[in-house]
Design a protein around this nucleic acid. Structure first.
Lengths: 340, 340
DNA sequence: TTGAAAGCGGTACCAT
DNA sequence: ATGGTACCGCTTTCAA
């Protein structure tokens, strides 16, 4: 294996009988350098395949042209889409993307942040883990003067720009659609109320019920801990066995809706005739389910691209930005599961 | 924006009244340092959240503890799983992962490689784009003495270790299962024969037919260009309208199988009774389809983890490894679409 | 066991 | 227009 050392500025300077600073300035075409010298140095550099050692440059400038990105889960259609959007935007601007995942564990998030700080990323894109309450490890970036953008799942404790789904509006219009379809006893399988998305979707759900004079019952709003297919199935069973049985279920996620659909199928309950089902996220599975699942498209790619864009702008301005919240609009996707 | 500089070794040394070298040695637990000093320094470091500036370390050691990873597509259940496996393995070893995607375009792959080289990654994990024929941009890593691992889609022109699905065996056993179920006229919607995976799956398919004395017809093996749902639908239509109509279809991917199923459903052809359908990859959609789709689980996570592991070992040995091929075994997942 | 200092490869400031 | 040099933060050799 060749371990041929790369040629350095010093080598160039020595060979050409000039100083290192002159060589550096020539290569970067600074003003105040004679055209002759520039040509001399550039020709020599090219001929000998000089490649600047970017570690040294980074070290000196304390910049890496690298952005850190931390998500709870990578194998997840929504987050993959977000990452994809961020990579596209960042790469287009000549930035690299360092990616890590937390599996929703605070411990992993801390490790990831340390690793990112250690990697001297110029800025951070993060969607915080469900488990995270203390946010010192993220605050550290801000303390170092590095911009941070929170997307999707965020903490109010961090003063950073945020890019999020418009959960309230999305939930409202999803539930309104159920009402328009004639459903009257609408349940909502929600997430934990410690997570802002869950809170906002719940608020949208409740407001829609209120605005249309429909009954709200606490027993119709169970809370998932892990947002899993299994929980969807269990809660559907629970809801269907209530004395006051709902005639529609608005699920926090398509995966939960899948569990719900599976239970309803096994119990011989007809969707959408007897019970309407609405998901959230528009994963590919929602299109494939039988009956196909009505849901809300979250535009993950756009969320990622927008987050990266904001970060890149802050990097350019050398600022940490304001604390604005950018809400990315959603699309209601109507399919069979809610069309009575 | 506070710009309080991160605390450095020098700060620690000054505060504790020791020298920088002692502080460094204490933090790295060198032998020849008193336990007291080690404790003193480590406690101080922890208390003040000292994080070594890895650019400086990297600079010094000419290593970045960062691995580059390039995939064709990020929003893809298989590749997400591979990435996830690689991240887990790499992070556990204290390595960071720089990720880029090519959208199957050679041009993007070249850009991604340049960016990775500029980022001074220590090694590269890559699944090459369908479009890629010239591999100079990847060879460059090898020329610089950096190890490269190819996974899933590779080029024989590159002398590197490879981690791949055992496509031949997987295809063979998938087709054998169809035969065992009584299907006799088995079609195969394949990918482009320029891609090794397609070639191997085709070989496995053909060998299974031969071993069981079944007829092979070229018209039964159409080739997808983009491996899409739409192509699956089109080819299914084509196959079903052949005078010699197949009674089973082995698809290159679950997505293609979805298109096939949609066509069969629309044409009123019963699965699995009239036509059996087999996918490949075991995406979530295969479980959700109606009828559920038999398929082959590729263990993407394992492929990613194994690739990272091999790379990490080479990094440790400071070698570029042999040109061994590691085949990751698969699991045949039998569901409704092939159970006559 | 500890300290001093060189040096990694650049950049940029201060002289000339 | 060019050279000299300090310096970024850390590791490591040499001395004490």
């Amino acid at each position: 294996m060749s371990d041929k050392r790369r040629i350095t500025l010093k080598d160039i300077a020595r060979e050409l009988g000039i100083s290192v600073s002159t060589a550096s300035r020539a290569l970067n075409s600074y003003s105040g350098i004679s055209a002759d010298t520039i040509k001399l140095v550039k020709d020599y550099a090219e001929k000998h395949h000089y490649v600047p050692n970017s570690i040294a440059v980074n070290f000196r400038k304390n910049k890496t042209q690298t952005i850190g990105m931390i998500v709870p889960e990578l194998v997840h259609p929504f987050f993959s889409a977000v990452i994809s959007g961020a990579i596209s935007r960042a790469n287009a601007a000549g930035y690299r993307l360092l990616i890590s995942q937390t599996d929703e564990k605070a411990k992993n998030e801390i490790l990831a942040c340390q690793s990112m700080i250690g990697g001297n990323v110029d800025g951070l894109l993060i969607s915080i883990a469900n488990e995270t309450t203390n946010i010192d490890h993220i605050q550290e970036f801000l303390d170092e003067g590095k911009p941070v953008i929170q997307f999707d799942k965020f903490s109010e404790l961090l003063d950073t720009p945020k890019v999020i789904t418009d959960d309230f509006e999305s939930a409202y219009s999803a539930v309104k659609h159920l009402i328009d379809q004639g459903y009257r006893k609408i349940a909502h399988i929600n997430g934990l109320m410690a997570v802002q998305n869950s809170i906002d979707r719940f608020k949208g759900y409740k407001k829609a019920l209120e605005d249309h004079g429909l009954e709200y019952r606490e027993e119709w709003v169970p809370h998932c801990k892990s947002i899993s297919e299994g929980e969807g199935l269990e809660f559907a069973k629970q809801l269907m066995n209530l004395p006051q049985r709902p005639d529609a279920i608005f699920c926090i996620t398509d995966l939960v809706a899948l569990g719900v659909m599976n239970y309803l199928k096994s119990a011989g309950i007809k969707v959408p005739e007897q019970v309407g089902v609405m998901g959230f996220s528009n994963w590919k599975i929602s299109e494939v389910m039988c009956p196909s699942l009505s849901t809300v498209d979250q535009h993950g790619f756009k969320i990622g691209a927008k987050s990266a864009e904001i970060l890149l702008n802050l990097l350019k301005e050398n600022s940490q930005g304001n604390h604005e919240t950018y809400k990315i609009e959603t699309d209601l996707i109507i399919r069979e599961s809610t069309l009575k």
